[in-house]
């Protein structure tokens, strides 16, 4: 028998928390209960070793439980598969990391996470850029006395043009990011942004901002999408703050 941990939250309103958890089941069908240390609680459920199956359905059920609780409480979501042997060990873990939990809970208080992925076929976009810049004076290696026109020269020019186009694409991505981050700063949003993640995902960003600012975020993203119809924006959320809890408990 072990304990699956779903989330860590502040237990200042334990009546409300217990009322919410009453009747809620964990991923193996056992009741959800709390393990508490001072003002911090972990929401857990009993689970037998033979029930420890990793599959998509269990992971989705696990996330669903966190989502439900997160609609009523500020919480720190646990990664799927976080389990300890007993309630005593969980209590010790809460005690040992108490101040870190408190700090992180304060950081995400009444905030939601949103995810933004900006898709585009970068090769097609670069083709468009190439066509548009045909009149530009693209850099190339000139043939001179030392370097005769050769396969080597053609290769160098091809690579130089590819590099130039990649640079243009990255500049373009930077411009798009700068446009919306400027507006998001006004909403006091915290952002984590990765660019050029794959050939198709140009921007992969997560934002943390006050729950009541959701509509303003949507408007910022809509405005950016309208300005760049060649890109395909996908905004998801609100999510519990998975990307904004940097805690690795030992």
């Amino acid at each position: 028998m072990g304990k699956m941990i779903y989330a860590i939250l502040s237990n200042t309103n334990s009546d409300k928390l217990n009322a919410l958890l009453f009747g809620m089941k964990g991923i193996s069908g056992e009741n959800l209960i709390t393990v508490t240390f001072n003002e911090i609680s972990a929401v857990v459920s009993h689970i037998k070793r033979e029930e420890l199956i990793a599959d998509q359905a269990s992971a989705i059920a696990f996330a669903g439980i966190i989502e439900n609780i997160g609609q009523h409480f500020t919480l720190l979501p646990m990664r799927y598969g976080s389990m300890l042997e007993s309630a005593e060990l969980i209590q010790k873990m809460l005690e040992k990391n108490y101040s870190e939990f408190q700090q992180n809970l304060q950081k995400v208080e009444n905030q939601s996470e949103f995810g933004l992925k900006v898709f585009c076929d970068s090769e097609k976009l670069k083709d468009e850029m190439r066509l548009k810049s045909e009149t530009d004076d693209n850099p190339s290696v000139k043939s001179d006395e030392g370097i005769k026109k050769s396969v080597y020269l053609d290769y160098m020019n091809k690579k130089l043009k590819e590099h130039h186009l990649e640079e243009k694409l990255l500049n373009y991505i930077d411009v798009v990011i700068a446009e919306f981050t400027e507006k998001l700063t006004q909403l006091n949003a915290v952002s984590k942004i990765k660019k050029r993640c794959t050939a198709t995902i140009l921007i992969d960003a997560v934002f943390l901002l006050k729950k009541e600012k959701k509509d303003e975020l949507v408007q910022v993203v809509k405005d950016s999408q309208n300005k760049h119809p060649e890109l395909n924006y996908t905004l998801t959320g609100p999510w519990p703050p998975y990307n904004f809890v940097d805690i690795n408990l030992k």
């Binding site: 996330a63 979501p77 976080s82 999510w239 690795n248």
Partner: peptide, 18 residues
């Protein structure tokens, strides 16, 4: 998110899910 983010516990006392 649920598989790669969030609070993670590591160590000998953790029961691992295969």
């Amino acid at each position: 998110r649920v598989l790669t983010k969030g609070v993670i516990i590591t160590g000998d006392v953790v029961i691992s899910v295969a």
